[in-house]
Design a protein around this nucleic acid. Structure first.
Lengths: 222, 222, 222, 222
DNA sequence: AATGAATGAGGGTTCATTCAT
DNA sequence: CATGAATGAACCCTCATTCAT
């Protein structure tokens, strides 16, 4: 009897925890929608609550403050992105060229590289100087990405020397990724993911000409 | 007598116009400072007025509204940037390789590429989706830059075919410029302008290997 | 069988009633703590619940509303005080001088006259004008105290006329008690109960000089 | 010409300062009204603004925050009271008995001892424990009053020893003043200022019987 | 009996804007 | 031109209360 009651309580408690978690996800999604549509400066708790279909007080109940909610939203984006490319690398061939290509491709997956999410990333980057917390979160992800990319470039160069140093290679590849993201945001509407990936692959081919075959093979898969 | 009086009036009117212009510049500068320090979402007229050392009402007097002031600030940045690289190209040799290099160098001049101004650019980019006016101003400049860069790449390729298409070449160069800007904003503090320019020049060299000599010459000037 | 079950039910019902009563006392104690620490204007159900170690909903469950809880807290203080001095008088000699002294002494018993409880009394007095319920509760106790004190003074004067009218005597004694309470609240920290009682006894001696012996005897007991 | 302009500016500036000062007094008066009518816990900026007939934002403009306004209101009461009895003493005969009587009388002047103001005093006393600022302001005035009263009692006792120590005399007189104030607040409605003063004067007479003549003379003036 | 998610009214405060001086 | 008092809408947040579990 007692054990049943305990189990019931656990179940109920687990259900509550699950529902709370669900609500938080929902609110973060609403926050991202609002930042995209309204910009960070016009994003209010009232808008977020309306978008999520809950009361305004409930938002504060789950996140304590607006600032905390925004921070969680950024953390969500950051985690999502990081998980995405780490998974892609882990799932790939141990060949560094393949991993490099997969890393780049991960940056343009629809789940990551939608106009909406890019818009939100830029919104946070724009407040990076004034909000140390944003700076820390953005910086942490950026650093991990850069270092991974640099490490792969070094491994490739060890096998087959290129005209470019590993540092400059990494910088130019990462730069082109970032620049294409910006094009998604600001550039003409016709800009497409596939074009972007093809462009970067061409660049990688120029930088590491000996790896042409591998690169082309992966490019054709995309 | 009359003419004197008219002259006086003209002089005084001219002085006023000049002073008004001066005040506006001062307020735009204060606005840029505030956006950098506080972020767009925390930038208020009160802060701007304090930063400029004038009363709050005076700000509205000169710019009608806060939105108008922000728009003027963005327009100022945009004009400044555009003037900078157009001047650099006009002053350069008619050789497209030289012009390409000068265009790139212009993007890293201290007057343009300070951490403060980059921060403000990102602040506006972050609200691009929600504010058509920002989108228009940012897009216009971006387009001009891209087209100029693309046109130069085409001219170079005409002389000497590269493995990369002119489009991809332009995209990768512009991308690396943008990516390096982002590094200035988010990346580690030690990031320096000269390194950035050297990196891009190396990339250009890989893309247009036949132009190595010209590129190196200009790189050594930087 | 049935009777057992009934008994069990009665027991359980009694237990529940007892536990409910216990919870209420606990919540009233927590309320008094909060009013002392936070003031009436900052005392919230959340604080009270935390102080009592229960959930916020539980507070409402036991008292229906915040206002009802506050009223009960005041009623508790009032009853406690009234019981205290009535018991003291009942336990004392029928001699009115003795009873007067015991009445005064009761006002300074630690259970009544702690800095915390005085603070809460003042909190309620401060809202007396705006809350008829508080006014009624405070007024009822005050009136009972005043009338008892006046009645005792009249009895004493009947035996032995004093220079002061019974009314003024009662007023001055009650006034000094209240004033000393205020000193406990606002005055310097060193203020002590024993000094207070001695001071009032001296005053009573001046008012009723013929009762010196009785008064001194009780004073020495204190 | 210039001097005229300067003068004009000064005049205008002086007018503004005067008007600002006037507004502040007006808002403090409205605050006191609200605390009396609603209690400290229900006093909101909206109520105060409405009572003063200005916008809510304007209240914050003049006082920065609600807390600052409340503090200023308390400070006003405190200053008003202190000024009142200090003036009374300064205007009186150098005779300490006379000064004592005038000090007591000052505590019951209509400008000080209205039901409204007493209500507000109690409201602040009730939050004394939780708000150090209130404690400081209340304590400062209380101390000055007590010390003045004690000093007068000492001077009187030096001339003519009484049965009571100066300390107890001062304590009982001050206590009765406070207690009567409390009666004004809580006690039956018929309580009157003149009765109060007469009662205290009788007490003083009992404490310092040799000064009967002087005391009676001043009592008859009241 | 007890919990905690949810609500919504209202709190203090901020802020762009207006306007008399 | 310049100031600063004044406004009112909206903001973030608090909190008493309700309700499903």
């Amino acid at each position: 009897m007692l054990s049943t009651s305990v189990t019931e309580k656990n179940l109920s408690s687990r259900n509550r925890a699950r529902q709370s978690e669900f609500r938080k996800r929902q609110l973060i999604a609403a926050t991202i929608d609002c930042i995209d549509k309204l910009g960070l400066s016009q994003t209010t708790l009232a808008h977020i609550a309306k978008q999520a279909g809950v009361s305004q007080g409930n938002v504060v109940f789950h996140f304590q403050s607006k600032d905390a909610l925004l921070e969680q939203a950024l953390r969500f984006l950051s985690d999502e992105y990081m998980t995405c490319w780490k998974d892609a690398i882990n799932a790939a061939d141990p060949n560094p060229v393949v991993q490099l290509c997969e890393l780049v491709k991960a940056s343009f997956k629809p789940a990551i590289c939608s106009r909406k999410k890019i818009s939100v990333w830029f919104a946070f980057w724009g407040e990076t100087r004034s909000r140390p917390k944003y700076r820390e979160l953005c910086g942490r992800h950026d650093l991990a990405y850069s270092q991974t990319l640099l490490s792969l470039c070094r491994q490739i160069r060890q096998k087959e020397p290129s005209t470019l140093s590993a540092e400059t290679a990494a910088l130019s590849i990462e730069g082109m990724v970032d620049g294409l993201w910006q094009n998604f945001l600001i550039g003409p509407a016709g800009f497409k993911r596939k074009q972007a990936i093809q462009g970067i692959f061409e660049l990688i081919e120029v930088i590491f000409p000996a790896e042409r075959k591998t690169i082309r093979r992966i490019a054709n898969q995309a």
